[in-house]
Amino acid sequence: MWRSVRRWQGIVLVVAALVSTVWLAVTNQLILYIHPRYIVFTVIMAVLGLVLVVASFVSKPDHDHDEPPKRWRAVLSITATVVTLAVAVGLVVVPPATLTTATANQRVINSTGVGAGTQNVSSAASAPAGTFAKFTVLDWSSLLRQTSDASFYQNKAADVTGFITSDKSDPDNVFYVSRFVITCCAVDAQPIGVPVYLPNWRSSFSADEWVRVKGEFDTNPSRTSQESIALVPSDTTKVDQPSDPYLY
């Protein structure tokens, strides 16, 4: 009896994880959890795993080798089983989602040197005008890290998309258009962002909403914000979350 509980718990968890993985891959949502470079490997192993699971249904279990656990161990085991099943249900039932501002704030936007070398000030200075419209939040945050000279940003129109995270030093007038940068999986996501000066932004937007901001960078007019340069928007619109919300 005890052995078959263990056996079926393993199979149920494997099925929940493998089926969810395959479904996420089919619906192109695996990138919400892992870097695209691992998708092929992950799918191959998931399919192999499913073949083994089906084979295990054909195979008849061995006779029982296990002793039933002692009382307190049984309580611990049952608790663990309930917890793992709860996670499995979450995996199968709750719709997939990206990380939110809770993690962006917890990990502090632009706190690491991530993407510091993505764009180079000297090559950006001489780039043709059309280049800048294609710059992502990562490109701009990389430049902002390197120079706070307002003249560098003149005549360089920005057009960026990201979710809103409020600026702690001036939460009413400045927010970050932010994205997560991923190296392996969502666990290592680093939040990066570009400060946007939009007085009283909460009247039309809220944190976690995805927006597209067009405008130019200038000296930050905010009195309290610690960001010296900010994007002063000419147009800010709500948009749907993109299908590939993370940057790499």
């Binding site: 994880a17 969810s20 919400l32 998931a46 996670v87 969502a186 666990v187």
Partner: peptide, 13 residues
């Protein structure tokens, strides 16, 4: 939930 699932999906293969 997202972080836990991410660890599972990444480790599973």
């Amino acid at each position: 939930l997202t972080l836990s699932i991410s660890v599972i999906v990444e480790s599973l293969p």
